[in-house]
Amino acid sequence: MVSLAPLPVPVAMPRAVVSGTIADLALIFRPEVNLCVVHRRLPRALDGFVTQLLAGLESLEAELRLGAHEPVPPDRLLPASAQAMASVEAWLAEVDYLFGIFRDLFGAKAIGLRLRLLDKAMCPRFHVDNVPVRLVCTYGGLGTEWLPEAAVNRERLGHRSGGLPDHASGLMLDPDAVRRLPAGAIALLKGEKWPGNQGRGAVHRSPAPTPERPRRLLLTLDLR
């Protein structure tokens, strides 16, 4: 089990790690790293299931709290119509895979899982999460947007924006620096409750849908 014991407050500016190697997710334990992103190509069967799901369901929102070694129950994750879709086994294997990564990496005793089908920006303004760490993965649509530390004015986060949108609040020091997670990428976002990370959480927001990509499937995992 990996401990989340308090660490000395890091001096280095928070930074992101972008990789194509799953093992590099462990770099989230470095004090200066607040975001780990692993790019990957999804299997064709999994892409096919996601395409069916986005076309066949009007809505989907599942929220589960599971023991670390408890199997993810299909009937609590998907409606019956989705469980009958072709290649559903590929989707269930994907969820088990991410669940296992998150459990083993953090030695979690319990994990919160949320699965949502979205057609609008859930959190449209840049923000940080009030959690230790969160796994995020988007399927079939636009991925989460994030800002490198050099492009963020943290004094304008949250209520300190004065109610102004991101482009007008002064939060974005460089609007051209906005990055987006590609579909299928696994991301670990360190939050404000990670020991020693207060004031250094990964700054991110939900993407605005486009006519070409109006919907997306979002899976998140949290420590519970």
Rank of each mutant, 00 (worst) to 15 (best):
V9C: 07
P10I: 10
A12Y: 13
M13I: 12
R15G: 06
V17L: 14
I22T: 13
L25T: 01
P31K: 03
V33C: 07
V37D: 03
V37L: 15
V38C: 09
R40V: 05
L42F: 08
R44E: 15
D47R: 09
F49I: 13
F49T: 13
L54S: 11
A55Y: 13
L57K: 02
S59N: 12
L60I: 07
L64R: 10
L64E: 07
R65F: 08
A68T: 10
H69K: 14
P73L: 04
L77A: 08
A80N: 12
S81T: 10
A82N: 03
A82T: 07
A90P: 08
A93H: 07
E94R: 03
V95Y: 01
I101A: 00
A108K: 00
A110R: 14
L113P: 00
L115N: 04
R125E: 07
H127S: 10
V131E: 11
V133N: 03
L142R: 07
W146V: 00
L147W: 01
E149L: 06
A150W: 13
N153D: 15
R154I: 02
R156C: 11
L157H: 10
G158R: 11
L164E: 12
G170W: 02
G170Q: 04
L171S: 00
P175R: 03
D176Y: 01
A177R: 00
G184I: 05
G184L: 08
L188W: 02
K193S: 14
K193E: 15
G199D: 04
R200D: 07
R200W: 04
G201Y: 06
G201V: 08
H204Q: 11
S206Q: 03
P209K: 05
T210V: 04
P211Y: 12
P211H: 10
L218F: 01
L218V: 09
L221P: 04
